[in-house]
């Protein structure tokens, strides 16, 4: 299980990475922590001609706060964010579910967003929180809302020549409450179903991962306790739950109903 040949470029700064990305076009991949890409390369599921290693770009290494948002640049590892879990209550709840200590130590936050696995925790959080993805190409910068960024299973709004420079997550406000839970086959596995909830006043927002090809978002301006079971059942049936090796469509719907209730209760209590 060895990768196909690829050229390798260690970029010292972002402009070098972007011009290499521009020149190589679709055949290049950005290599950050490599926790998802590495496995795909080793299995030859992915055969890029060039890997552009961005992990030595110092400017992308530190989390910062900016205009009531948390800015997490491309080289910040999941473990580094977890160590600053004081920064956001939802991240503190969700990040321990992301892989294992050993993969979080190298896996990056932006890498997980770029990989856009529908079962992953970070895309789910980004979607729930209404985060943004800051994208750069050699000549352009643009910002995309999380809801628009995820286009499908491992498909994003990123175009050839572009990379994620950072993700921005609005800081939690005092009146917001968060909850997160998921079920996988084992601890650290991809979620069969993951749900995250946020309540702000009467408004309740729920995102579901592991079912559709992208994080699914529902929002209720008000939701009476008595209506919760029906609302969750509607949600469960409205998503594209399917059978796979690890779970049935029915089980996924069961989890949406049951885990949904748990997170809603948690943010409502």
């Amino acid at each position: 299980m060895k990768p196909a040949p690829f050229d390798y470029l260690r970029a010292d700064d972002i402009s070098a990475a972007l011009s290499a990305l521009h020149d190589a076009g679709e055949d290049a991949r950005v290599l950050a922590g490599g926790q998802s890409l590495g496995a795909m390369l080793n299995m030859r599921l992915a055969k890029p001609s060039l890997l552009i290693d961005i992990m030595h770009i110092e400017a992308l290494g530190a989390i910062r706060e900016e205009k009531a948002a948390l800015v997490i640049p491309a080289c910040v590892t999941q473990e580094a964010l977890l160590r600053r879990s004081d920064l956001h209550p939802l991240l503190a709840k969700a990040l321990p579910w992301t892989g294992h200590v050993q993969t979080r130590a190298r896996g990056t936050v932006c890498g997980s967003i770029a990989h856009a696995d529908p079962s992953a925790e970070l895309p789910l959080c980004l979607a729930l929180l209404g985060g943004e993805v800051s994208i750069r190409s050699r000549r352009k910068r643009r910002t995309v809302q999380a809801a628009d960024f995820f286009r499908g299973m491992m498909l994003t709004d990123l175009r050839p020549g572009e990379m994620i420079e950072a993700v921005r997550i609005p800081l939690a406000r005092k009146n917001q409450r968060f909850a997160f839970t998921e079920i996988g086959r084992r601890h650290g596995d991809f979620a069969i179903v993951a749900v995250a909830a946020m309540r702000e006043g009467d408004t309740l927002r729920l995102t579901v991962g592991g079912v559709n090809d992208t994080p699914a978002i529902r929002e209720w301006a008000t939701l009476d306790t008595a209506d919760i079971p029906d609302a969750l059942n509607d949600l469960a049936w409205s998503l594209d739950a399917r059978d796979d090796l690890h779970a049935t469509a029915r089980y996924r719907r069961d989890l949406m109903r049951n885990l949904g209730r748990i997170v809603i209760e948690e943010v409502s209590s």
Binding site: R10, T77, Q102, R106
Partner: peptide, 16 residues
């Protein structure tokens, strides 16, 4: 450990 942090060495390449 790479530079003090845990790593799966099968998911890294020597040149990195």
């Amino acid at each position: 450990r790479i530079d003090g942090a845990l790593a799966r060495s099968c998911l890294a390449y020597a040149v990195q």
